[in-house]
């Protein structure tokens, strides 16, 4: 057992490294309330803009809130939202992609032309536009990001379903008397999911980036809720005197996004998926 683990660590260095970091992040996210030294929203103006000390390991911000605690709680908001975006857009994309690919004909045409319409806009522009209409707030940003995101899943799933549909085992299942529903659940979905899991790791990085940038612009998470993008936003007024206020959350975003992207790329290389290098998306 230990021997095999050793072999795995040596042969899959990147994957093991990424998994360890993601595991640590997951622990932070779950145990934030227990490991955070202070309440992340507790204002203490007498202790504002302090450097690192024993009481405040990473110092305090302009309202005297503990930066470390805010970072730990921020992981909850950022990673939680990213997971939510991933799950929702995956489910929507899965349903739409399955219907489009399996049914074909005009249903496919309508759904895919709509997806094309969504894809025709640059992601950020569309999200900004939707949030502009609905107003700022975490909920609105989440919905906008899901709206932009599901099309990529739907596209990929439709493609996979189209090729699966021609496999003889689908014909064989029909001949065995299986219903369309059973064919979908037993034969198509289990064979569609593995490439999606890989795609998902890449897309989670994307979601965190966009969520943070929305918060940075003041459109996403509203104060005083801690979130990395929002922390950079709050810190930017003090860039000359306390640049670390921006650097810490910035580093966290970078770490998470890079880890997810590295993991996604290694996985897709291993399982032979085609990645568009310019956009980092799976075609």
């Amino acid at each position: 057992m230990i021997e095999r683990l050793g072999v795995m660590v040596r042969s899959q260095k990147v994957m093991v490294f990424c998994s360890v970091i993601l595991g640590l992040l997951l622990l932070i996210t779950i145990f934030a309330p227990w490991i955070a030294p202070h309440d992340p929203t507790l204002v203490n103006v007498t202790a504002k803009l302090q450097g690192s000390s024993l009481a405040y390991p990473l110092g305090t911000d302009h309202l005297g809130r503990c930066t470390l605690s805010r970072m730990l709680y921020g992981a909850r908001t950022s990673l939680g939202s990213a997971t939510l975006i991933f799950m929702s857009s995956l489910s929507i994309g899965l349903i739409i992609g399955l219907i489009a690919g399996y049914k074909g004909g005009w249903v496919d045409q309508v759904l895919m032309r709509f997806a094309d319409g969504v894809m025709a806009f640059p992601d950020l522009l569309l999200v900004l536009g939707l949030v502009g209409i609905w107003g700022a707030g975490l909920k609105q940003v989440l919905i906008a990001l899901i709206f932009v995101q599901w099309v990529y899943y739907a596209r990929v799933i439709r493609g996979v379903v189209l090729s699966l549909k021609e496999q003889s085992y689908i014909t064989a299942a029909k001949i065995s008397g299986s219903s369309q529903w059973k064919i979908m659940m037993k034969h198509i979905i289990p064979n569609v999911l593995p490439p999606l899991a890989i795609m998902g790791t890449l897309e989670i990085g994307w979601a965190i980036m966009h969520l943070s940038s929305m918060s940075f612009l003041g459109l996403g998470v509203q104060p005083p809720i801690p979130e990395w993008g929002a922390m950079i936003h709050e810190g930017k007024s003090y860039i000359r005197t306390n640049p670390l206020l921006m650097v810490y959350p910035g580093l966290m975003i970078m770490l998470v996004v890079v880890t997810f992207n590295l993991l996604g790329e290694t996985l897709s290389e291993r399982f032979g998926l085609n990645i568009d290098n310019k956009e980092g998306r799976i075609k």
């Binding site: 496999q167 003889s168 085992y169 014909t171 064989a172 299942a173 001949i175 065995s176 008397g177 037993k186 034969h187 289990p190 064979n191």
Partner: peptide
């Protein structure tokens, strides 16, 4: 449907690889 069955040429693609 139950009385009419089939066996195809490619035995590998006629079965779901995950079953």
């Amino acid at each position: 449907r139950r009385n009419l069955q089939a066996v195809f040429q490619d035995s590998y693609s006629s079965v779901n690889p995950r079953m």
